[in-house]
Computed example of a mutant assay.
Amino acid sequence: MLRPTALRPVLRSSPRCQQCLRRNLFSGKGSTRASQDFDLNKLNSQRRDYERHRTIFLASGATAGLISFIYTAWKLKEALAEQSEKQKQKIAVKCDAPAIPTETFKTEAGEKRKIVVHDEEGRVIVPTGNSVVPAFPRTINVKLPTSKESNSVAASISDKEGDEFTLVGLGVRTVTFLSIQVYMTGFYVATQDIAKLQRYLVKKINPSATTLIPAEKDALRKALRDVAEGEETWDTLLREAGCRSIFRIIPVKDTDFPHLRDGFVRAIAARSQRNAAYNDDAFGVAMRDFKALFNRGSVQKKQELLLCRDEKGLLSVLYSPDIGNEPKREVMGTFGEERLSRLLWLNYLAGSKVASEPARESIIEGVMEFVERPIGTVATQVV
């Protein structure tokens, strides 16, 4: 074997080998090829292009999906409205009597009068425009429970007991942008207390008047529709006038008590948070008990729920699974906290956002019928 030292003379004596080695090491051909293959700027540019194209593609897909969703929802809403209208026409055709009329006629004096409609039992009814709950009774008889009455005693309350309440206005409660109908609601005032309602609203516009002329009615209508003034008007009326009133709720689809509770609680909480006067223990306890009251099961369509408020603001919740000729109403609970019932009432009567805009508008128009008559005459008139 040749020793390593034996190769040194050979390398030194081979200038050609040395020249080849020097050319290969310092010619730069290998480094140029590597820089071409691993050009970081070029790779970074390609990556940016890829990310940009990918973002554009995803954004286009999301936009197309959103547009298609909105279009489909709009078409679905139109289809549901058309189907509801067809159902109303079918119901009107199937009924022995013609569809409930809503038009008015004029007397010889030029005064407009509504056509009176009766159901099979002879009760005066008011059309709702809903196919599931087509009409509300013009008057209902309800015995308002006291805070001392137990549920076992109040469970025997029937529709023929108690005081008479007269319908002021009604409307449908809808949710989501699809306007899905949840329940019909009607606002009733104790017939004997309508004079209190008349007096307060008439004196608000004209302190020296006993009835309002058309221009004054327009001023009152504008005030009740205004967000701030309407809420102030109803808030003061509920606190000072002492009118007994009821919100009658009839679901148009199967639901449950927790679902109804969530709507009530959200509305009360939203209004109470705007006023520091509600941040006390008494109101917090009332809210807790009110929530617990609705820890129950389902509520089928056409069943009746009554939210009752007496002259002192006592809130009573009555429930009846049967709204036949003589429904038996169960008193679910009573609450002595006046502020709780007042905020719940304002959720339907006034503010920037109400539970049912059709109901609020109908109530305002019903109030206009009251204030155009002399104070105290509506309670005794023959409908």
Rank of each mutant, 00 (worst) to 15 (best):
M1W: 13
R3S: 13
T5L: 11
A6I: 05
L7N: 08
V10A: 07
Q18S: 11
Q19N: 06
K29Q: 12
T32R: 14
S45Q: 13
R52S: 09
R52K: 10
T55G: 08
F69E: 08
F69S: 10
T72D: 10
W74R: 08
L76K: 07
L76T: 10
L80N: 14
A81G: 14
E82N: 12
K88N: 13
K88G: 15
Q89H: 14
I91D: 14
A99Q: 09
A99I: 07
T102H: 07
T104I: 06
K106S: 10
T107L: 13
A109V: 06
A109K: 13
H118R: 15
P127F: 01
V132N: 05
V133W: 00
V133P: 01
T139H: 10
L144C: 04
N151Y: 08
N151V: 12
S152M: 08
T174G: 11
Y183G: 00
T185C: 12
Y188T: 03
V189D: 00
T191C: 03
T191E: 06
Q192L: 05
D193N: 11
A195L: 09
A195I: 09
Q198E: 12
K204V: 04
S208M: 09
L212V: 06
E216K: 07
K217E: 07
R221S: 03
R221T: 05
A223R: 08
R225C: 09
V227I: 11
A228S: 12
E229H: 07
L238C: 03
G242W: 02
F247E: 02
V252H: 02
P258S: 03
H259G: 06
A267H: 07
A269Q: 10
Q273R: 13
A276C: 04
A276V: 10
Y278M: 00
A286I: 02
F290Y: 01
F294S: 04
N295C: 08
R296S: 12
S298W: 08
K302L: 14
K302G: 06
Q303G: 07
G313C: 00
L314Q: 04
P321E: 07
D322F: 10
G324I: 05
K328Q: 15
E330P: 02
F335L: 04
L344E: 01
Y348R: 01
S352R: 09
K353E: 11
A355H: 02
I363R: 04
I363D: 01
M368A: 04
F370C: 10
I375W: 00
